[in-house]
Design a protein around this nucleic acid. Sequence first.
DNA 1: AATAACTTTGCAACCCGGTTGCATGAACTT
DNA 2: AAGTTCATGCAACCGGGTTGCAAAGTTATT
Lengths: 137, 137
Amino acid sequence: MKKEIDNKLNLKNIKPTAMRQLVLQVLTEQKTAISLPELEQKFEKADKATLYRTLKTFQENKLIHSIEDGSGSLRYALCQDNCECDPEDLHVHFLCTNCNQTFCLKDIPVPTINLPSSFSLESVNMVVKGVCSNCKK
Amino acid sequence: MKKEIDNKLNLKNIKPTAMRQLVLQVLTEQKTAISLPELEQKFEKADKATLYRTLKTFQENKLIHSIEDGSGSLRYALCQDNCECDPEDLHVHFLCTNCNQTFCLKDIPVPTINLPSSFSLESVNMVVKGVCSNCKK
DNA sequence: AATAACTTTGCAACCCGGTTGCATGAACTT
DNA sequence: AAGTTCATGCAACCGGGTTGCAAAGTTATT
């Protein structure tokens, strides 16, 4: 619903332009994390750079998070409601080596790592690769 | 020592060409995981494609492992002696956001993840980002 | 309502890591 | 020595990501 989309944007202090509404729409319908090229394909005609910058603003305002998907490219997915993208907020991601989809394992938080005390922690990227349930059959 | 280098190669069934000896030499001296472009710079004149293929054979023969370093590119480091690159053999990597070096945290194994039973596990890429001890001072 | 100031969009171009095709060259086989 | 196989070097390409810049759209100011 249009209202909800605008709401989400407003909540994160993102001006609701047409483009942004559309992109958020797609991200909302999307069950798996999506890459920029994939997002591009969801539109008839859309400019890569604009989408790129849209994702960037979304990420800066913590509406979405990104992960390196384990195959060299970035994927994006909506954050949980009160996610601040701090290490505690992060979950594990799963890349299916067959269908190439990336799943957010939202209920598997990234395990805590005991870094040497001389290292400081900012974020964690954890991607598990394997075969997903759809492809295993 | 030349002998040791050749030994390592032979042990993994890799024909010890001049190029391979040189690359293994560099990897041995290297304390942190190195990227292909970085490796290129270690030589006066060397072909990217050759280095690329050298790394690839090294990896196929489990002499080195690779990780997505958290900034979109791949880095390579020598495997531990009896590493088979199975999930149990893997360790956590650390990317310093300041000096951009990637450290193998050899004594921190990748934590076990309880995947939904419908998912099968092949490998794990875990990169922690933060500031390393050298840069923290 | 008109102008100025700022933001977003679209296009083109670029960068860079990774990768492949192909021809030459080295090493091993008979 | 001829033939096969494998390694190397060069060039070219691909694709994801990123930037500069000018046009279009918004918002603020008078």
